[in-house]
């Protein structure tokens, strides 16, 4: 054995143990019907062994699939909207204009707001007597019950997500836009290319990698949407805004079916990894 390996072996084993242990533990629990109320500590979970029953329950879990669908809906709406807004703002901010520095500071502020605070903020904004309705009253008297209507609650939640995460998209895309060589853009202009042609033939191809990264980061984060949303709606009304994370949270803390939660978690982890691999390969092309 090499000296270096021998010296670092204890540390390596520790790191491996730390990263793998929770997964192994989850795998173990997912094969049982154990719960913290079952009276036995977790190592004795084998007493409640039910082999793959938790896994075979997954396909029939209607609430799970609905939550998954809702999460994907939030993802496919919010991420593109954030991308387009971020790109538009980025294109604006690569040029100089008066007051740019101030506008920049204000723009990236939402990103710094603690998600829980953002949740309360939007909870207030979307109250029946809240500022959003006040604003809409300009067009006539309205009392829209945003957070108690199943679809409108979903809209409100998405608005909050877009508000909070467009700045990140903007920052990443601005970094990419600044990196597009000015000389090439000028050369294209002098060869008669219109702004749109320049964007399509010079800017976009040069931003391919950074766009892929930005979309990937936001897609993964959007899939895990929880904090702001949970404070705004608690997943309600009913299960109208219940996303994957909210569903997990509820069945873990309310229903206490930990064996099933463990099975679900592993299932989601594996399928998400496969989906991400696939998506990255497609986008890179």
């Amino acid at each position: 054995m090499k000296l270096g390996l021998r010296l670092t072996l204890p540390a390596q084993v520790l790191v491996l143990f730390i990263s793998v242990f929770p997964l192994l533990m989850q795998l173990y629990i997912s094969l049982t019907d154990w719960s913290p109320l079952s009276g036995a500590p977790w190592p004795r979970a084998w007493e409640f062994w039910n082999s793959f029953a938790n896994y075979t329950d997954i396909p029939g879990d209607r609430r799970l699939w609905a939550a998954l669908g809702r999460t994907l809906l939030v993802m496919v709406i919010c991420v593109p909207v954030e991308f387009l807004l971020g790109l538009g703002l980025g294109l604006l901010f690569v040029e100089d204009f008066p007051g740019k520095k101030l506008a920049y500071s204000i723009l990236i502020m939402p990103m710094m707001v603690v998600p829980a605070v953002a949740g309360y903020m939007f909870f207030m904004l979307f109250q029946s007597g809240g500022p959003v309705n006040d604003l809409l009253s300009v067009f006539g008297p309205v009392t829209i019950a945003w957070l108690s209507d199943p679809w409108l609650a979903l809209v409100a939640v998405m608005v909050a997500d877009i508000w909070q995460w467009t700045p990140l998209m903007f920052l990443i895309l601005l970094a990419g836009l600044v990196g597009v060589p000015q000389d090439q853009l000028r050369a294209a202009t002098l060869l008669g290319a219109s702004p749109w042609q320049r964007f399509r033939t010079i800017t976009l191809p040069r931003m391919k990698v950074i766009i892929t990264i930005a979309l990937a980061i936001r897609a993964i984060e959007a899939f895990k949407i929880f904090d702001t949303l949970y404070i705004m709606t608690g997943g309600g009304p009913g299960v109208a805004t219940e996303t994957i994370s909210v569903y997990f949270y509820k069945i873990t803390t309310n229903d206490l079916i930990w064996g099933y939660v463990a099975a679900l978690a592993l299932f989601i982890l594996v399928s998400l990894s496969i989906a991400a691999q696939f998506a990255m390969k497609r986008m890179a092309r």
């Binding site: 060589p181 000389d183 090439q184 000028r186 050369a187 294209a188 202009t189 002098l190 060869l191 008669g192 290319a193 219109s194 033939t201 010079i202 191809p205 040069r206």
Partner: peptide, 27 residues
């Protein structure tokens, strides 16, 4: 500048490096 119809060769050439020679020439 897009409408002036001048040819311009930059000191650093400003070649579109993500394109082929042909795509540069007939851009």
């Amino acid at each position: 500048m897009a409408r002036r119809g001048v040819g311009f060769v930059f000191q650093n050439y400003a070649i579109f490096t993500h394109m082929t020679v042909r795509q540069n020439l007939d851009y």
